[in-house]
Amino acid sequence: MIEVQNLTKYYKDFCAVDNISMTIRKGEILGLLGPNGAGKTTTLRMLTGYFRPSSGSITIKDYVMPEDNLKIKSLIGYLPESAPLYHNMLVYDYLEYVAKLKGIDDKEARYDRFLQLSDLCGLSAIMAKPIADLSKGLKQRVGLAHAMMTDPEILILDEPTSGLDPNQIAEIRNIIKTIGKEKTIIFSTHILSEAEATCDRIAIINNGRVVADDTTANLKQNAGRSSFIRLAIQGAQKNDVVDLLSGISEKLDISQVSENEKHILSFEIRCSDNTDFRSQIYLKIKETDWIIVEFQKESQALEKIFRELTREEK
C-alpha cells in the first residue's frame, strides 16, 4: 500500500529524517513512536506531500511522489498536530469548505456525509459554533472529521491525543479503532500505552532513524524479561518474606520497594528466565498468616525497549 524508500530530509544542515525505509500494508494500524524531535512529524509531513523529501521515494498504491501529488493527496486524510483550523469559521461552514475542496460536489452527498461524520465524531451539538470557541478536544474531533471527509483509504494522524483529557483520549482512541478495521492508519504518539492499545505494528524512531519496526506482540515478547511480579503484603517482617520467597527458586530476584505507614510491604520479584512463579508464590504465602494486598504481574516491555532504543548516547 505505502512504500517508503531511503527517505531523507535535511533542514539546512540538520538531518531530521535519515534514510527511512518501510512498507505499510493495507489495513494496518501503524504507530510511530519516538521522543520529541525524533522526526515523527517530519516523516508524516513528507508522506502527506506537505514537505518535499531531500531524497528518497514514496509510493502510495501505484502513485509516485511528487508527480502524482494531487492524486495521492486525495487518497490520504491527514490530521496535523494540534488540528490547525480556520478559527473564524463555523464548524458547518468549515466542513462544507473542506468537502468542496475535496471534490464532494453534490449537495445531497455532502449533507449525508456530514450526518455520518457528526455521528462518528460527535459533532452534532457544535455544528453551528465558531471554531475559535471550541475546546481542544472538540477541535481535534473537527480535525478528525476533516481527515475522514472523503472516507479516504489512508489516514495519517499526528499526535491525535496530545493535550486531551483522559475521557477525550479514550473517545479518540475508540474512533481510531472503529475506523481502523477497514482503513490503513498511521499515527504518531509518544504515549506508549496508547500505541500498545491501538496499534498492530509499532515503529520506533530516534534521531531520524527507525530503530525498531515490528508487530506490537513481537516487540513485547522480545522484551519479555522485563516483566515482574508486584507483591504487597500486610502483617509480615521483611526478612521473613525474603527468606520464604527465595526458598521457592534460586532464579528469583527479590527487591523491596517500600513500606508504608500501615506496615504494608511492597516487593518487586523478577525472574532471570521467563518462568511464571505466581502459583508457587501464592501457595507458599497461603501457609502463613500474612495478608496479600496486591499480587500482580506487570510488564514494562514497551517502555523498556523504548528507553533502551532512544537513550541518548553520551
Binding site: R45, T48, G49, Y50, L70, K71, K73, S74, I76, Y78, P80, S82, P84, L85, Y86, H87, V98, L101, K102, G103, G143, H146
Partner: peptide, 14 residues
C-alpha cells in the same frame, strides 16, 4: 501562523 496552511496544502488542491 495558525498552521492551517498545512491543512490546506494537504488537501487535493494545486
Amino acid at each position: 501562523n495558525v498552521g492551517s496552511y498545512e491543512t490546506l496544502l494537504t488537501m487535493p488542491v494545486s
